[in-house]
Write a protein that binds this DNA or RNA. Sequence first.
DNA 1: ACGGTGACGTCTG
DNA 2: ACAGACGCCACCG
Length: 107
Amino acid sequence: MQANPFEDIYAVVSLIPSGRVCTYGAIANYLGSKGGARLVGWAMNASHASVDIPAHRVVNRNGVLTGKNFFGPGIMQARLESEGIRILDDKIQDFSKHFWDPSIELI
DNA sequence: ACGGTGACGTCTG
DNA sequence: ACAGACGCCACCG
């Protein structure tokens, strides 16, 4: 709802509840593909330093922890596991079950 | 000012 | 079924 797509992405990502994960495509789709999934990733890249943004809960369509390199070797996975999310080989297990869709949850 | 790149997604061959 | 290319917008050189 913000004029800047960045704030839009920040708002949605920061609204992701604990123990839930979201995908770039879902956020982009919720924003109306405003910029595409890439901008979502870019917003995360710019916010990776902001703890206010649970970027570790944002993964790609395959449920794979892609940008774990930015957080740290294992930090992202450990954080998700700490929230009750099972991860195997940097991949989220039961991803569909932990999937959090803003267009549905936020209405 | 311009081109290339980037934590992706979807279509076509 | 798998592989390759294209598309979206913003930031960096």
